[in-house]
Each structure stands twice: as C-alpha cells, then as structure tokens.
C-alpha cells in the first residue's frame, strides 16, 4: 500500500481529522522558490510547517525526532521552545530536569514536543515488533529504480500526485532496479533507501542490530551538505 493511502486509512480508522500541507502549496503561494527544479526540498519544509502552525495557531506540535538520529538532535529537549519566528536557539535552551517539563509559551510561540527523544532506532523497531504495528510498505524491502549519486542510491522517476515526475536521472547516470527499503522517510529529493532484503519486522530488527552505517548516514543527502546542516535547518524552524 502506498504510504499516503496508509496514512489516510489510519486517519479514517481513528476517526481523526487529517490536515495535510505540502511544499508544493507553498511554491504555488510563492513562499517557497526553488533555485532549480531538482533542488532538494527538505529545508523548504520549514516554510510550509511554519505556515501551517500560523494558519491553525498550533501552540504545540508533536514530532517523532530522536536524539540518536543526529548530533544536533542529541542536544534537543523533549519540550523544545520555538520563538515567534519558529527558531530554535540551541545555546539558550530551557534546562529540562527529572520528568518536569516546561511547555509554557506565549501566543505566537510554539512548543515542539518529542516524546520518543530517548528511543533509539532499535527501540522503535523492537516496539513495532512487540506491539505488532502495521506499517507502510516503503519501510520494507521492495524493488525500486535508483541511480548511484554521491555515495547514495537516489530513487529516480518518482511520480507526484499532480502527475509530474521528479528525480529524473541526470545524463550519464545508469538506472538500476534494486531491492531496497527506507530506514528514514523524508523528502524524496534528498532521501535515499538502503539495499536490503528485510521484508519483515523481525528481519529489520536483525538488520538494525548488525548495520555498520547510521540511520541517516548514507540516506539523508540533506545532512551531508555541511557538518551542521541539521542544526542550521532546525534554527530556521525545521522539526
């Protein structure tokens, strides 16, 4: 099942109202301008996110970020304060002690809550296994067209909802059909899968235990632009 169908099905099961905002909408509004058609869109998600927070006046947003994912995230609070510009100020964070969380904010400001901050990638998979949770198929091994680019396997010729296709192979790149799965799911313009034949949760748990690269290491091209890319994006409002 396609991940978005999975998402919609889950929302229907819970009987909850699902709000979706996309970078494409921000592009239509003119608040996101791409330098080129194939520019990674990940950092632009901050714009869309901040627009959605303003639109609905959310005072708290819950995210699934974890400290073990990335070195800037290792410094993140469970209740993380963002000012009226959505900025994270890593040098000036609220101390967080015991289980006493300070989620206070003024109007226009925002709290990002990360309840699974202290989980590791392994914890997540063990939890999924123990609770028998259902997942979108993108997390399991599947065949996919990729090209090798910058040490990562970039998914190519990805169709979008509006019928257009992104991640078109560049001249000289060879498209290969490989057995892959996504360890982390982000914007397809900068998120690469890993080679894997793990088609069950049990196999993924095993693979996670024996992997020699980090979750974002060979998979997130957005993290690789500089040593502090994540920190920079978070300062601008990113999750």
């Amino acid at each position: 099942m396609k991940w978005s169908d999975f998402r919609d099905k889950r929302a229907a099961e819970l009987g909850e109202r699902l709000i979706v905002r996309s970078v494409e909408e921000s592009m239509t509004r003119g608040t996101v301008v791409l330098k080129s058609a194939d520019e990674p869109r990940n950092k632009h998600q901050s714009v869309t996110l901040l627009e959605a927070i303003a639109e609905f006046e959310f005072d708290c947003c819950i995210g699934g970020a974890r400290r073990d994912e990335e070195k800037a995230r290792a410094k993140e609070r469970i209740m993380s304060f963002r000012d009226e510009f959505g900025q994270w100020d890593p040098k000036n964070q609220r101390p967080e002690l015991w289980n006493l969380y300070n989620a206070r904010s003024h109007k226009g400001e925002n709290i990002r809550a990360f309840p699974i901050s202290n989980w590791t990638e392994m914890d997540v998979w063990q939890y999924i296994e123990r609770e028998g949770l259902e997942l979108p198929s993108i997390y399991f091994a599947h065949q996919r067209d990729v090209v090798l680019r910058g040490g990562a396997m970039m998914p190519v010729n990805v169709p979008l909802a509006d019928g257009s296709v992104i991640n078109v192979p560049k001249a000289g790149e060879t498209v290969e059909n490989r057995l892959v799965r996504f360890r982390t799911v982000g914007d397809i313009t900068c998120t690469a899968p890993v080679e894997s034949d793990a088609d069950t949760v049990a196999k993924i748990v095993l693979e996670t235990a024996t992997t020699t690269i980090t979750e974002r290491g060979a998979t997130r091209l957005d993290d690789q632009t500089s040593e502090a890319s994540m920190e920079q994006r978070k300062k601008e409002g990113y999750f």
């Binding site: 990335e70 070195k71 290792a74 410094k75 890593p90 040098k91 964070q93 040593e227 502090a228 920190e231």
Partner: peptide, 15 residues
C-alpha cells in the same frame, strides 16, 4: 554536536 561547541572546542550543553 553544536556548531558553537565545535568551533570553541568546548561542551556547552548536555548531550
């Protein structure tokens, strides 16, 4: 993990 920590070679915050 923070840019400022790497620049200054000190630990500022709890990691």
């Amino acid at each position: 993990g923070l840019q400022a920590e790497r620049e200054q070679g000190i630990t500022i915050d709890v990691a």
